[in-house]
């Protein structure tokens, strides 16, 4: 399982870097999205993939039934997903504004701030 997830993480990273290097704005956004997915999946994988009980205490009990999965990587990923959701929404609006103003989605034409 870990091996397969590792391969998926690698593919996600490769795809996102490929997309980030393209001159199109749409691909940039998709690339950024894939990049955060790759990081999240990496976090999930290195947090040990186990097939055990969920880390939720049953009604009336004080602790989950042993053995239970490590809840921390999931909590970290959840936080990271929420953050990337917000940031990507903002980036999307930003790129849309830029597209409206310049009428192009080619990043190579954005040289206004470089000189």
């Amino acid at each position: 399982m870990e091996g397969m997830l590792a391969v998926v993480v690698g593919v996600l990273y490769a795809a996102s870097f490929y997309l980030l290097l393209r001159p199109s704005m749409v691909k940039l956004i998709i690339g950024l999205g894939l990049l955060s997915h790759a990081a999240n999946l990496l976090l999930f994988t290195v947090g040990r993939v186990t097939r055990v009980n969920p880390p939720i205490a049953p009604v009336g009990a004080l602790a989950p039934v042993e053995p239970f999965a490590n809840p921390l990587p999931q909590a970290l990923i959840l936080t990271a997903i929420v953050i990337s959701f917000g940031v990507l929404a903002f980036a999307m609006v930003l790129l849309y504004r830029s597209y409206q103003m310049s009428g192009t989605d080619n990043l190579n034409e954005m040289r206004r701030t470089d000189s």
Partner: peptide
């Protein structure tokens, strides 16, 4: 217009760095 263009560069590069930071945190936790 210049602001939006500058912001795109700023946002993109900083998001990449955040993703790397998160990956580093993950590896360190592992």
């Amino acid at each position: 217009r210049a602001q939006v263009e500058g912001a795109i560069k700023y946002v993109t590069l900083n998001l990449i760095s955040s993703a790397l930071f998160l990956a580093g945190v993950g590896i360190l936790y592992g």
